[in-house]
Nucleic acid binder design. Structure first.
Lengths: 372, 372
DNA sequence: CTGTTAGCGCCTTCAC
DNA sequence: GTGAAGGCGCTAACAG
């Protein structure tokens, strides 16, 4: 089957076009850069024809090398497995397309070491900026980036002492919203379930806000940069709190470690089994992966009708939420991604501002699970 | 807040390093390319030090320009919304990482026109190859690519007359597996629900295989390149067939058009409502998006206990399948992505072969929905 | 072993 | 209006 036009036909270069059009490279370059006003209609026509004939397409890499900007931006993702990530990615994609940028996607699969390597790889490709949604974002890791290096914007995370924009959910408000909803609906035994949060600011904020509301301090303090509340972090740590008789617990679910998950879930089971008919238990999942883990476990343990036993509320609104009827707080994921790129773009274009935080509101979607 | 190390410190170049190390650019280049055997330990040490001191990182773009290969490959995706896509993407990511390639991800959001533009954009970045999972893959669209141009591998789709590798599910076998499973479990009224399939080979193959089994011709013919069965495609088209008393229907669900979906679902409802107590109805979703649409509708119409009314089987195994208990045929998505990159890599490295098709088997995961 | 010399494809002064 | 020359950061012959 040798239909193959043998010579992989080296793509035409600007020189080829110049020759074909009977002119110099300069004019071609001008044409490419839209400096039409400086070209005689006649020459312009010839160039147009030549380009057409040769199916010429300027080499972005070469242009980039010369101009010092290649329109590439890096996107570092911790976990493509999380629907949140994918949704954000869509916003990013759209914004890039609109702004003439091209994203280089890197998936670190929850490995901090890989994040580091990717970050440096991106650097190597001379991306003009990076959007980071990773776990291991430390000040030092990002130094080559956020600092004197290329501009960066953080998604759903902020890092102390780093000069970079950040955009994400208003975690404090979202967690308050959810907790209040549960309280208002008469739940008096609420478990906030979250992945290890020592390193991740957004998880810290959510957990802290939950605890505050439960403690009855639900003041609407504005979310500050980095929670810094970071509690020791015993696996399965359980902070107690109460508000008008309602009790609140924090349960850590380390999804990366099956054994730890097992233990945490066992603790939860005990609570559920032991709960008197008088108290209504609700689970508040800090994000979709946690919610899924909980739902699967509960279903396995209590059968298809598990929702009669416990209510489940989750931050994030995965596609199965509607199907299963759990209440959620939907993040404006698409917009988060879009805004992140816009921020980055501004910085790339040289707009100088101090680090900005863009906190977007979540939307409570009440479903059968908590309203019955 | 002017912590910013003012000069965005132009990154060091090979020239800088050469000067710093008191030598020529060539030696640096040699060092970078691992030609250690040709460098005196002494020089080598100096270079190492200089690189360290300047935090030098070679510019991939420049190398690419010179060598004619930049280790970039394009990945064109029709729909990031589909879990399948994301899973494949993970395999792709992993393989790229292993092979030293860097993927440029393009999301066409189900718009054929955008696919075309992205393809050409990728070309502009001089990617060394592309992996395509799109809708509008026509021979002509891909001409600049698959043909004399850069190598391409198709995912989950084959295009007639295009010289390109393809990797995906063994659709024929998968559809047969599913249909047989339903038949074996006593379902005698089976609806195969699929998105418009005139353009998409994989959907064609699945539908055709379903019909054949229903017709009793379930021969295990090997899947050929491109089904070409392409049936007219009336929206809501319904082909009848029967096998030992069991009836089979094909229902087209155009997810992009709410009105069409409405109509199709109404037809389905009629069938379900009208079904006598004697017949057992099963729905066979051609992929996860279709399955989700069906599940949501059924739940809305028949309540939480909808599964008592109809059985649902789906190709694809989305995260909510386990939770909801539907039977599925899981695709080896990760491997599909991984293999796709491997194929592409071989072609990039110049291995000449005729177009290969790599058909991977699906795995039937039986759950309550069809087994009770 | 090591350095010099040309470019890769394009853009950008700077003259004509 | 138009073109020639030089250089972006790096590699690949060629000499030494």
């Amino acid at each position: 089957m040798s239909t193959t036009p043998l010579a992989a036909a080296r793509r035409a270069t600007i020189t080829d076009v110049a020759r074909e059009a009977g002119t110099g490279k300069t004019s071609i370059s001008r044409y490419l850069n839209g400096e039409m006003s400086v070209l005689s209609p006649e020459l312009r026509a010839r160039i147009e024809a030549a380009i057409e004939r040769l199916d010429y397409q300027p080499n972005q890499m070469a242009r980039g090398l010369k101009r010092g900007r290649n329109r590439l931006i890096g996107m570092l993702l911790a976990d493509l497995t999380n629907p949140y990530t994918v949704e954000v990615l869509q916003g990013v994609e759209a914004a890039c397309h609109a702004l003439g940028l091209m994203p280089l996607i890197c998936h670190a699969a929850n490995e901090v070491e890989m994040e580091r390597r990717y970050l440096q790889l991106l650097t190597t490709y001379r991306v003009e900026g990076v959007i980071v949604n990773a776990l291991g974002v430390r000040e030092e890791t990002l130094r080559p980036v956020g600092g004197g290096g290329i501009p960066a914007v953080l998604v759903d995370r902020s890092v102390e002492g780093l000069v970079a924009d950040m955009v994400g959910l208003d975690n404090r408000a979202a967690a308050e919203l959810g907790t209040r909803h549960l309280l208002d609906h008469g739940f008096d035994d609420i478990w906030f379930v979250v992945q290890p949060f020592e390193q991740v600011s957004s998880r810290q904020l959510r957990e802290a806000a939950f605890r505050e509301v439960m403690r009855g301090e639900g003041g609407k303090g504005h979310e500050g940069r980095t929670g810094g509340t970071g509690e020791g972090g015993t696996s399965g740590a359980k902070g107690e709190g109460s508000k008008g008789g309602a009790r609140g617990h924090t349960l850590v679910l380390n999804l990366g470690e099956p054994a730890a998950v097992e233990r945490a879930l066992a603790e939860l089971d005990r609570a559920i089994d032991g709960a008197g008919k008088a108290s209504r238990i609700a689970l508040f999942a800090a994000n979709a992966p946690v919610a899924l883990c909980l739902a699967l476990h509960l279903k396995a343990r209590y059968g298809a009708d598990w929702q009669a036993r416990v209510a489940l509320l989750s931050i994030d609104d995965p596609e199965w939420a509607e199907l299963t009827g759990i209440t959620t707080i939907r993040q404006p994921t698409y917009e988060i991604g879009y805004r992140a790129v816009e921020f980055l773009h501004e910085r790339i274009e040289g707009v100088q501002t101090t680090a900005r935080d863009c906190l977007l509101p979540g939307e409570l979607i009440v479903r059968a699970s908590t309203s019955r």
